[in-house]
Write a protein that binds this DNA or RNA. Sequence first.
RNA 1: AGGCCAGUAGCUCAAUUGGCAGAGCGCCUGUCUCCAAAACAGGAGGUUGUGGGUUCAAUUCCUGCCUGGCCUGCCA
Length: 332
Amino acid sequence: MTKKGRVFSGARPTGRQHLGNYLGAIKNYVALQADYDCVYCIVDLHALTTVEDTVNLKQNIFEMALDWLAAGIDPQKSIMFVQSMVPEVTELHTILSMVTPLGKLTDLPTFKEKARENPNNINYGLVGYPVLMAADIVLYKSNAVPVGVDQAPHLEFTREVVRSFNYRYNCNVLIEPQMKVTEVPKVLGIDGVQKMGKSLDNHIEIAGTPEETQKRVMMMVTDPARIKRTDPGNPDVCNVFSMHKIFSPKADVEMINIECRRAGIGCVDCKKLYAKSLNESLASFRAKRAEFADKPAEVWAILHDGAQRAKVIAAQTMREVRDAIGLPNLGE
RNA sequence: AGGCCAGUAGCUCAAUUGGCAGAGCGCCUGUCUCCAAAACAGGAGGUUGUGGGUUCAAUUCCUGCCUGGCCUGCCA
């Protein structure tokens, strides 16, 4: 480990990724590879807490792996794998659950939210979700976890669990991960109001065709006060403009900022320009993705190899954990 | 394990004594707008959890099962 340490992050297999996933997580995953040993996990077990229909699970895992690889996650540098392929995490989850007060779990805002969204399926796993997440993080001896502000309570929970474990068993085998607060740009959906999300159907897929992408871009909500072409607009309240700032050349952004305000450019032209910039920005990603999509066996081999490497770390951690507790090991 | 309650459109819920299964929101289309939004007009969407039974006729009554909730108990 010659780098700054190990970073772990997990994401639920939600299938084809959208701009919110890309800007909020994937880009950051790619960037972190330069400075850290990275472990990126497709957390399929976590998905089971709320997903009742698993017929698409493998496909969703595959689609997300394609997006990650095409975006630049390098399986040579980083470990990329599927959570359930290293079942040690479930053992650690059970062990950590014994030092976890139930009240802390039911107090977490994410639990309350999920329980409200899904009142007829409040299962044990949903309550224990943060414990499993803590197990993910510490199993791979992670030093840091990139989190947005909304995930901060969960990581703080992980740190508390680590301290509880180390204190209870009078040891220092679990590493307390640092919170690596990353500035997550707030990516709004095409409705211009809510955060972009697949379940809200207000998303734009990164792997779509240029035509599909433009179609979704044309559906975006703009400045509601600008009714007619001749009305001056306000880019400050327009979601299209905020996306221009991310994907378009500086000259275009400056031009729109001026011309929109004096009705020099209309929303249709503005959106077409954004769609063009977006498609150009994603072109090489899409080309790489298509190559991986043609070689599914290779993609699964990458995931299998990642699981093998992850398992080496996991086995070492579990040995230390069992020794610290005093559990007998097979063959002793 | 037993008792009680519930399950109807994507969501929240109606449906009289057993008599053509509806509304709001959301979704799609159209009008209007540079687009989107808003407004207005129209439209789609259902094996009423599921298998039986009674009846001319079952969302409604009886019954087996599934799922969820509340209560009581048993075991760990």
